[in-house]
Amino acid sequence: MTNTGQYILETDGLTKEFKGFTAVDNVDLRVQRHQIHALIGPNGAGKTTVFNLLTKFLIPTRGSIKYNGEDITHIKSAEIARKGVIRSFQISAVFPHMTARENVRVALQRKLGTSFHFWRSVKSLSGLNDRADELLTMVGLERFSDSQVADMSYGRKRALEIATTLAMEPELMLLDEPTQGMGREDVELVTELIRKVSANRTILMVEHNLSVVSRLCDTITVLQRGAVLTEGNYQEVSADPRVKEAYMGKAA
């Protein structure tokens, strides 16, 4: 099982220490290609910190990160994104003062190589509109392409965020609580959407909603106090008494 080709992302002894407090403790994470992998754990277990380390929004204290066999421990956030690792954020990450189509286009336009061209008209981007609308259709937002994003509902903002992420054609998507704060209908919608977009790519997600996790995820890693408690598929993990304890406290 040491064949590196099988894993798209590997961390070795990943550690983050803040002053006198270890937020992430010696985490060895192996994410298999083309799987949906969940990172769960009680509040404060360090899930989001792991995401921030993987995408270099935080700098690891120790340990290494490999993506497709390449060491990316010392590479900056924007470059990691260009390598095909795209993350989402806990709160919806959209550009509220732009239209939905413009939001998606921001992700598409980098490939044109004109993003520094301040003398060129914005009309030079209209060649990307078809692709942008295609992506919006994919997430069910075809009617909203000209809407100002600030006026859209929360569920639609999250859908837009996924469309924007897809525009980057990521190999690995990191989703930070994609269904957080949603009503049940929106949860269903987003769950289906994630399943749909997971074809031919790998997804690592932090998720609290265990029913979503059970339906979507192939592998689950449970974090507790910054360290890996256990790993396995849903049946294995949910049967583990230590996991129940971590969530509920020690049984009386």
Binding site: T55, F57, K76, S77, A78, E79, A81, R82, I86, R87, S88, F89, A93, V94, F95, P96, H97, M98, E102, N103, R105, V106, A107, Q109, R110, L112, T114, S115, F116, H117, F118, W119, R120, S121, V122, S124, L125, T164, M168
Partner: peptide, 27 residues
């Protein structure tokens, strides 16, 4: 023109949500 250019689009994206712009690959 700068405001209504490809560059202007990225600039408003950064003003709206800098972290997201970074995570879409922009320095």
């Amino acid at each position: 023109r700068a405001v209504n250019s490809p560059f202007g689009q990225i600039l408003s994206a950064i003003r709206d949500n800098e972290d997201r712009a970074t995570s879409l690959g922009y320095d």
